[in-house]
Every structure is written in structure tokens, then in C-alpha cells.
Simulated scan of single mutants.
Amino acid sequence: MQIIIKNKNGEFKAILDDTLVARSFAAQLPIVLNLQDYANAEKYAKLKMPLDISNSPRGSDGKKGELSYFAPWQNFVIYYKDQSYYDGIVRLGEITDEDIAKVAIDGEIKIELVR
């Protein structure tokens, strides 16, 4: 599934994986989130509703440009630097536009499905 992430820098394309957790996220779209920084590696915002992580791996690493869900805190995450393996990280997809610095910023974003 293709999505668009909109922020003050423009519109950016991303692809969600064909997984149960990614479909669970897509069901919440469109959504407006207020991103903030964590550990100088990621931007995150808490989702209002948890995602279905059944059949997901126990954890993952976060690679630059990936979209993930941190299940223990119910956070949507955009990685702008690599993150080593951590229990609770579940990959959602990846940003296809190359300038991650323009996508991964503090502040409001809107995420929509491309129909």
C-alpha cells in the first residue's frame, strides 16, 4: 500500500509492507500526528489505538528511512538513523523519497493512503 506523508516541507511517498500490522496501521488513516525526537535517531508519536501485532516478529532493528511501530509504547516511528535490534520494534514499511531529513522533522504530519 502506498501512503503519502505530509509536513511543512512537502509531500513524501512511502510504501507499507503487506503485513497484518501494516494493514492495521492503514485502517487508522488518514491520521494527524505530532512527531518529536527520540535518541537522536527517530521521530515518534503515540497512536490513539494500538496496532495488531499478532504474527509479527518479537523485535527488529530500525533502518534509516523505515516506518515502524514500537508496540510497548504504542508509537509510530520514522527512523532517520539506524537503530540496533530492540524487542517491540515492528516494521511497517519504508519511505521511498530519498531525503529523509525533510520527512523526519519535529512537528505535525498527516499520513494518508494513496487510492
Rank of each mutant, 00 (worst) to 15 (best):
Q74A: 00
L47C: 05
R23Y: 08
D82K: 07
A27G: 07
K63Y: 06
Y85R: 12
K43V: 09
M49E: 14
F70H: 08
W73I: 08
E66D: 13
I5H: 03
P57W: 00
Y44C: 08
L47S: 02
K8Y: 03
A26T: 08
K43P: 01
K8P: 01
L92V: 11
P30T: 06
V103S: 09
V90I: 15
I4Y: 00
R58Q: 15
V90F: 09
A39M: 11
N40F: 07
L67I: 09
A101G: 09
V90G: 09
F25E: 08
Y44F: 13
Y85K: 12
G93E: 04
E112K: 07
A27K: 13
A14F: 07
L51G: 04
L29R: 13
L47F: 03
K6D: 11
I100D: 01
Y86K: 14
K13Y: 09
Y79F: 15
K64E: 08
K102T: 07
I95A: 07
S60I: 00
A27M: 07
S68A: 15
R23I: 00
P30R: 09
S68G: 14
I78W: 01
E108H: 02
W73D: 14
G107A: 04
F70D: 02
D17S: 13
L16V: 06
A104H: 04
L33C: 04
F25H: 09
K6V: 00
G10V: 02
Y86E: 13
D17M: 13
I31K: 12
K6Y: 08
T96H: 11
T19S: 14
T19Y: 04
G65Y: 02
T19R: 14
P57K: 14
D97A: 10
G88Q: 10
S60K: 11
A41S: 15
L33S: 02
I4T: 15
I105T: 11
L92P: 02
L35Y: 00
K46Q: 13
I15H: 12
I109E: 07
S60D: 14
A104K: 03
T96P: 05
K81T: 03
K8A: 10
K6A: 11
E94Y: 15
W73H: 10
R23Q: 15
Y38R: 12
L33F: 01
G107V: 00
G59M: 06
A71Y: 04
I3M: 04
L51Q: 11
N55T: 14
D17T: 10
S24M: 05
E11Y: 03
M1S: 13
G59E: 10
G107F: 00
G88P: 05
D18L: 07
N7F: 03
E11S: 14
G59S: 10
G62S: 02
V90L: 06
I3K: 06
Q2N: 15
V77R: 11
N40A: 14
D37L: 01
A41K: 15
E11I: 07
Q36Y: 04
D106V: 03
I5L: 06
P50A: 03
D106I: 03
Q36N: 13
